[in-house]
């Protein structure tokens, strides 16, 4: 009886603690949202008010007019979707090869891929920029897509997954006379669907929120991605906070939609644990 009472007490306390912390995590976003609903003169009024006196969507209308969000969304979407599809295919095939074939040079390649996690683009921005120039990829969306296709994380996710697939499955397909390409596309890729979806979601988020590549590759505002468009507000001498706050919220919307649609896959911890490298 006593222990049951204790349990109940512990449950109340821990739940309360959990939600206090959760609210602390939530608050910055809520504050951004509340502030974005304030008209410009209320934003900097003193003393500060938590809730807007005259909530208004003017800030949103203003940023929708000033920033060409549709254009930025489309650009970012093109980059994110194309890269994601190519990343999944490239990582799956590469992971499959690394898991199921045993050649010395493949092992060497595995180590090379490991090295890329250590020397990400951020570290070698200057020479990478020269490469982009040489390949004629400067100021093109292709310049964002192509370099981002290869990801060590994706390759390792698939490699780990395919290692768990029994070799007998492959052998029997081979005996049936299927060639390796057919085995991969018709047998292996379909059974790796959970990994593919997880990687696709991650890849999409990486590309949607990517900053470094667009920063060094793009110059034409017609090709701006959402993040670079935001940078043009944050970097200004006089930050236009009304514009910045509502634009930040707008930039979140697509990711939130993705999250709502794919929540099941994202929060399914079984799949994410596959990320273990």
């Amino acid at each position: 009886m006593n222990s049951k009472l204790n349990d109940k007490f512990a449950t109340t306390m821990l739940t309360a603690a959990l939600f206090i912390i959760a609210l602390m995590y939530l608050f910055p976003i809520v504050w951004l949202l509340l502030s974005s609903l304030k008209p410009g003169n209320e934003l900097f009024s003193y003393p500060l008010k938590i809730f807007p006196d005259n909530p208004t969507l003017d800030g949103y209308a203003y940023s929708w007019q000033t920033m060409e969000f549709i254009k930025y969304f489309i650009n970012t979407l093109i980059v994110a979707v194309v890269t994601t599809v190519l990343t999944v295919l490239a990582s799956a095939s590469c992971g499959f090869a690394l898991a199921k074939y045993n050649y010395k040079w493949l092992n060497a390649f595995l180590i090379c891929m490991l090295a890329t996690t250590m020397l990400p683009t951020e570290v070698i921005m200057n020479p990478t920029f020269s490469v982009i120039l040489n390949l004629n990829l400067y100021d093109s969306l292709a310049g964002l897509v192509i370099p981002s296709i290869s990801t060590a994380t994706g390759i390792f996710m698939f490699r780990q997954y395919f290692m768990t697939v029994p070799n007998d499955l492959l052998e029997s397909a081979r005996i049936d006379g299927a060639n390796e390409g057919k085995i991969f596309f018709q047998l292996m890729l379909p059974i790796a669907k959970p990994v593919a979806i997880t990687l696709a979601i991650f890849s999409f988020q990486w590309r949607w929120n990517d900053y470094i590549w667009p920063l060094i590759v793009l110059s034409d505002p017609n090709k701006y991605t959402v993040q670079i468009a935001l940078r043009s507000i944050v970097g200004a001498d006089n930050i236009d906070w009304v514009l910045l706050l509502s634009s930040s919220i707008i930039s979140l919307v697509p990711m939130i939609i993705i999250f709502i649609v794919f929540q099941r896959y994202i929060m399914d911890t079984g799949a994410t644990s596959g990320i273990k490298g």
């Binding site: 489309i74 650009n75 979407l77 093109i78 979707v81 194309v82 599809v85 190519l86 100021d139 093109s140 969306l141 292709a142 897509v145 110059s219 034409d220 017609n222 090709k223």
Partner: peptide, 17 residues
Amino acid sequence: LFATLVACSGSESGSGS
């Protein structure tokens, strides 16, 4: 993939600087 590639190349030729 195809749809976006087409859109991609389209937007590039349309607004090259």
